[in-house]
């Protein structure tokens, strides 16, 4: 890798976040240290409630940390958000029910003030990307949960951000669609040199997609292992049978096991 590619996009040092709830404070993030470089594909993996979504929301400036330092593109997360530095795919589709599929995808583009033709072109292109051509005029309630999630992915992609934040985007999909979208995403990442941060519960998915895997553990949410993957960027699904792949999977599994507590 050249020096240019090692430009840090996200730098996190000693980041802490405590939620003040009615009864006890929840220490959602504890002393997180993490650097994401331009062009990285970083996966967060860890048991439910370990703070993956919270960390992603801090990066997106949807949650304020209570301690530590974080910068996005060399700015504060707030400045980065105001510059529309990222596209965010939420854990739930969050479509607007009064808008058609096409109009939902056009929403961010309307806000950005793009021309009508450009909006339509991008909507069509990204709908095709998630295999939903022909569903432009449907309303969200006419789609299955997985289809809705794919629309929300198309919506985030249509912004064409350099940084993509994806919170369990493929959680609601069947295995085959998931494989297909994994390949599509990987191709997109390889050709556009985007930086992707990706949350998943699936070890094979994390290993297949990522150049860097962040293993987290709960209570308090912290990073217990960061695994750099040396798999080639232009990988295909067959790579899942190789010894290198299995070796990385094993290390992720070990990390998850060590961080897992069974006391509650």
């Amino acid at each position: 890798m050249s020096d240019v590619e090692l430009k840090p996009v996200i730098e996190i040092e000693k980041l802490n976040l405590v939620f003040q709830t009615a009864d006890t404070p929840v220490h959602a993030l504890s002393d997180i240290d993490l650097t994401v470089n331009a062009g990285d594909f970083v996966s967060f993996i860890g048991p439910s409630g370990c703070g993956k979504t919270t960390l992603m929301r801090v990066i997106a400036d949807l949650e304020k940390p209570t301690g530590g330092h974080i910068s996005v593109n060399g700015m504060t997360p707030e400045e980065a958000r105001q510059k529309r530095a990222y596209g965010y795919v939420f854990q739930a589709p969050a479509l607007y029910p009064w808008r058609t599929v096409e109009k939902n995808i056009m929403l961010p583009l309307e806000i950005m003030g793009l021309s009508r033709e450009e909006q339509k072109a991008r909507a069509a292109r990204n709908l095709a990307m998630v295999n939903l051509e022909g569903f432009e005029k449907k309303f969200p309630w006419q789609l299955s949960g997985g289809m809705q999630q794919r629309v929300s992915i198309a919506r985030a992609l249509s912004v064409e951000p350099d940084l993509l934040l994806m919170d369990e985007p493929f959680g609601a999909l069947d295995e085959i669609t998931r494989d297909h979208l994994n390949e599509q995403l990987l191709k997109l990442w390889d050709t556009t040199k985007k930086t992707v941060i990706f949350v998943t519960h699936s070890i094979p998915e994390a290993v297949f997609l990522s150049s860097k895997i962040v293993v987290m553990s709960p209570r308090p949410g912290k990073v217990i292992d960061i695994i750099e993957s040396n798999l080639p960027r232009d990988r295909t699904l067959d790579i899942r049978e190789t010894p290198e792949f299995l070796e990385i999977s094993h290390r992720v599994r070990e990390g998850l096991r060590s961080g897992h507590s069974y006391d509650d």
């Binding site: 997106a60 400036d61 958000r81 105001q82 529309r84 939420f90 969050a94 009064w98």
Partner: peptide, 26 residues
């Protein structure tokens, strides 16, 4: 979530009103 989405687009208060609050209130 619907409001957070607008925030990620860095939408203005007027845009949030016309594109989200108003249609949701109908």
């Amino acid at each position: 979530l619907q409001l957070d989405l607008m925030k990620t687009y860095s939408a203005s208060a007027a845009q949030v009103f016309w594109k989200l609050r108003m249609p949701a209130s109908i």
